[in-house]
Amino acid sequence: MPRIRLTHGRLEIAPAYAELDDPACGGVVLFAGRVRPDRQAGSRVVRLDYEADRKLALRSLEEIAASGRRRFGLGKALLWHRTGPVRVGEVSVIVGAAAPHRAQAFRGARWMIDRLKSQTPIWKTERAPPERRPPRRPGPRRGRSAG
């Protein structure tokens, strides 16, 4: 599996960890971002819809990984991001850094996720069900004359 991905499919931690396997690296840091059930105008968010300018986003992820490897001496760097609808609780992004020592791996992973959020053309839109109004209580009957 490539270490740079933009995919409609689910993201799983185990294959990401396997991608970062490097005998020279004693530290592996994996960050997984998940969709939170935030509130939006009285309703709870049920999913996020992600879209990307695909070609530029892939280029950006490649550049971030290459810079991350160079700046922090990472053995391997991984950036995976979902597109399309992602439900609450599902993983929307995985960033991984493998380095000889833990400090490099932590710093590299942190730098790469921050960079992704500010530099990669990906957008999310919150989706929540419409606000529910309490059912109207029946009022007193009016206007009907007997007879």
């Binding site: 992600y50 530029l56 991001h81 992004v93 959020k117 990669t120 990906i122 957008w123």
Partner: peptide, 10 residues
């Protein structure tokens, strides 16, 4: 021309 509003990935 592509119009890119502020990014919000992650």
């Amino acid at each position: 021309v592509a119009v890119h509003p502020p990014y919000s990935g992650g």
